[in-house]
Design a binder for these strands. Structure first.
Length: 488
DNA sequence: ACTGCCGGGCG
DNA sequence: CGCCCGGCAGT
């Protein structure tokens, strides 16, 4: 947690949005984790922007506000990259640069879309270094799997950074996962290999795609490709028509109510003209680096794979889950909340643990999931943003957890915040729906909450119910003992 | 002044 | 043990 890199900090530069937040994420991560950042991508206003991209030795960190990229000294980056930290995120496997294997095999060659996608992918990768990423996986399994690792970030503004990460972890599937997931899958391949033959991976793809690959290289300049912005999907297609179809069929559903035009909102055109320069080219966040098709510079970069998680970097929250790296014990806290995010609605703050694997962490994660689950279709981004903003992840978590009276260990940091917001809500509303509300509401409060001082804020039965309704107090309160219902 | 809770007492 | 309350300490 503690380790931060200057660069990350810079991210905070993203001015206002949530300075504090920004920092944390970074912190959470381990140094190695940083790498992950690369993977993360942010979406803004529908567009995705890669938070980080490595290029020419510099890592660019997109400003949350998107204002400007920050550069981090390569040195660090490389290190990270070099070692495929992959392990960190268990969830996201990095694709083995070494293509050889299997990963690709997954695809079901059969579908036409696949082909298109593949082709697009290849091309993209070629032209844009990064591209490789996920597409392949996404195709196969759009969401899921790997996604966990990925950053989801749908967040709207740059703010989200953290959140994004979480999302991915937690449920992830979420939105952005695609990229990351894909990329990372493979922890395996040794870096060296990757370096040596990054292209091969591509070739593999090419096979399916057909000549594309070759052509792609030669062409190097595409007019443009279209990338699906759907949360968990990262497909890249060369034709807008195809993309529309993709969006409609896979995401909107053929019959969906969505207006015909709707698809336009779910994909973005990517122009990859710059053959050489990946960076600009790839809007795609997905940092493919893992695959790093592009031979050019990539040498070190390619290894990126580790990056998958990186996403989090921006997001503090993530850090906590820190996913991969360390299974946080702590996680319990967040986990609970996040974990079941969706499930929990009703009550169970406690149960959560199941999911989290990585997430463990905190609130943010939880928030993410929730969003994901509920908002999935709607407006994830917004919420995300919120989350990220919230200064302390902890805050989030707690609320969720606490709601139910269950008191977890989680308390640790969170303590008060949750109790406050939660408590009230709990009282007033037990309904599940509230939770979402809570989160939102909480977020602001959370901000404040960072650390509770004392009882002042923590609401106990007395505050909640008032003396008049003493009968509703928990027994402990009635007996003037430590409150059991709203423990600190 | 309120509140939260420990410590202790009573039945 | 359940129930209550005196009293301390933090706000």
């Amino acid at each position: 947690m503690a380790t931060k890199r200057p660069g990350d900090t810079s991210s905070s530069s993203g001015p206002q949005s949530c300075p504090s937040t920004a920092v944390r994420p970074t912190d959470t991560r381990q140094p190695g984790a940083e790498t992950q950042e690369t993977l993360v991508y942010m979406q803004c206003c529908g567009q995705e922007a890669p938070n980080l991209t490595e290029r020419n030795g510099h890592r660019k960190i997109m400003d949350r506000n998107h204002q400007g990229p920050v550069f981090v000294p390569q040195g660090r980056t490389e290190r990270v990259w070099t070692h495929p930290p992959a392990p960190q995120q268990t969830t996201t496997p990095t694709i083995p640069s070494c293509p050889v294997s299997a990963p690709y095999s997954f695809w079901s060659p059969g579908s036409v879309e696949m082909d298109e996608v593949m082709a697009a992918m290849v091309l993209t990768s070629l032209s844009c270094s990064s591209v490789v990423q996920s597409s392949p996986q996404s195709q196969n399994d759009p969401l899921p799997g790997p996604s966990s690792g990925g950053g989801d970030m749908g967040c709207a503004g740059g703010d989200m950074e953290c959140g994004g990460g979480e999302l991915s972890d937690s449920s992830s599937s979420g939105y952005w996962s695609w990229d990351h997931g894909n990329v990372s899958p493979a922890p395996s391949p040794s870096v060296a290999e990757m370096d040596s033959s990054p292209d091969e991976g591509l070739h593999m793809e090419l096979e399916q795609g057909g000549e594309l690959h070759t052509a792609a290289r030669s062409k190097s300049s595409f007019r443009g490709t279209y990338r699906c912005l759907w949360p968990s999907c990262g497909k890249v297609l060369t034709s807008s028509v195809g993309m529309k179809r993709h969006v409609r069929v896979l995401h909107l559903g053929s019959g969906s109510e969505q207006s015909p035009r709707e698809e336009d909102f779910y994909y973005t055109k990517i122009s990859c003209e710059a053959p050489a320069d990946p960076s600009p080219v790839s809007p795609l966040p997905p940092d493919p680096s893992p695959i790093s098709p592009l031979p050019p510079d990539s040498s070190p970069v390619s290894p990126l794979p580790p990056a998958p998680l990186p996403v989090s970097s921006p997001h503090v929250p993530w850090a906590s889950f820190g996913s991969p790296l360390s299974p946080d014990p702590d996680s319990g806290l967040q986990i609970s909340s996040s974990g079941s995010g969706s499930s929990r609605p009703s009550s169970g703050p406690e149960s959560a643990p199941g999911q989290h694997r990585p997430l463990s962490q905190s609130a943010p994660s939880s928030s993410w999931q929730i969003q994901t689950d509920h908002l999935y279709q709607a407006s994830t981004p917004l919420q995300v943003t919120m989350t990220s903003c919230s200064p302390a992840p902890c805050c989030w978590t707690p609320p969720t957890v606490s709601n139910q009276h269950s008191h977890h260990n989680a308390q640790v940091v969170t303590g008060r915040c949750r109790s406050v917001s939660v408590g009230e809500q709990w009282l007033q509303q037990n309904s599940v729906t509230n939770r979402l509300t809570t989160l939102r509401a909480a977020s602001p409060s959370l901000t404040h909450c960072s650390f509770r001082k004392g009882r002042g804020e923590a609401k106990k039965c007395r505050k909640v119910y008032g003396v008049e309704r003493k009968d509703q107090w928990c027994t402990a309160c009635r007996w003037k003992k430590a409150c059991q219902r709203f423990p600190d």
